[in-house]
Design a protein around this nucleic acid. Structure first.
Length: 283
DNA sequence: ACGCCCACCTGGAGGC
DNA sequence: TGCCTCCAGGTGGGCG
């Protein structure tokens, strides 16, 4: 499920309930996620103060005041839900609720993940940048480090398709399958174009398109196809703004190509993932 | 080093 | 209703 905008939305929803608060108790109902939750995890978290909630790529980082960091990934189907004190008291765990963080205000933060592709591990603040999960991540697309020159350099040696390349987390941190198609559409670049040929004006357009799509999607609270929810339970709205994703057979919103006359949005498969694009508009 | 294929896991949708 | 197949927003290991 979650790509950069969804994870950003989750972080912003969690922050008011966690920052400046202590984690009073940790309940683990299943440890066998993508990486197993370590035996000592609860003991190392309980009683500690959360100083900052932030996102890096598709990871949620819960910084603890005394030097630890919880690295949390939602996988494909993960959700983070905040329950207020009253609901925490009466709530019985739902199916696939794997971890519950109880705060000093009596609220709970619940990690629910049916497919268990997510993970939650404890790292140290000092070793964070070199952590195996984080050390190969590329620049944050909404930061100044993500510029046309940097993107060009990252793509220069790549012989494969640009769509597959920008989904590599070392190229664009936080990119995922939906926003890759949407960004390439906005930049009018074919997803099949060889990555190394995205240079100059095309690279600049792609950088701008990626930034624009992510910014708009964050404002919309992300995209809800099935699983994504804000921590308060609300769904995102950006799925209503998709221009190509999931719209194969429809007319392209950027040109007048008629689906009945072999125009319209096409669906293809690249590296095993669905890609949507308009062959008339994107080159 | 890169690129492709697959596995990991559950559940929803659609066909018969 | 039930069974079967396919598909899904991510990641990384194995292989060529």
């Amino acid at each position: 499920m979650p790509e950069l905008p969804e994870v950003e939305t989750v972080c912003r929803g969690l922050a008011p309930h966690l920052e400046g608060h202590r984690i009073a108790r940790v309940t683990i109902r299943r440890r066998d996620l993508r990486q197993p939750i370590a035996r000592g995890f609860s003991g190392q978290i309980e009683g500690r103060l959360v100083s900052l909630v932030e996102r890096r790529a598709k990871y949620i980082l819960l910084h603890l005041a005394d030097g630890g960091v919880v690295i949390w990934h939602l996988g494909m189907s993960g959700r983070a839900q905040v329950l207020d004190a009253a609901r925490t008291k009466q709530a019985k765990p739902a199916k696939h609720d794997h971890v519950v963080l109880l705060t000093d205000e009596g609220k709970s933060v619940v990690f629910n993940d049916p497919r268990r592709f997510g993970l939650m591990v404890l790292a140290t603040e000092s070793g964070l940048a070199e952590h195996p999960l984080l050390k190969r991540l590329g620049p944050e697309p909404l930061s100044d480090a993500f510029a046309a020159a940097a993107l060009m350099a990252a793509l220069a040696s790549r012989q494969g398709a640009v769509k597959t390349a920008i989904m590599d987390q070392s190229v664009v941190a936080g990119m995922g399958n939906i926003y890759a198609s949407e960004s390439l559409f906005r930049a009018a670049i074919s997803p099949k174009r060889k990555a190394s040929t995205v240079r100059g004006g095309r690279a600049s357009k792609l950088v701008a398109a990626i930034r624009e799509v992510f910014r708009e999607a964050i404002i919309a609270g992300g995209s809800t196809l099935r699983d994504h929810r804000r921590p308060d339970g609300d769904i995102g709205r950006f799925q209503n703004a998709f221009q190509v994703y999931g719209r194969d057979g429809a007319a392209c919103p950027g040109c007048d190509c008629n689906p009945a006359k072999s125009g319209g949005i096409r669906k293809i498969s690249q590296a095993g993932r669905a890609t949507f694009y308009c062959p008339r508009r994107q080159h």
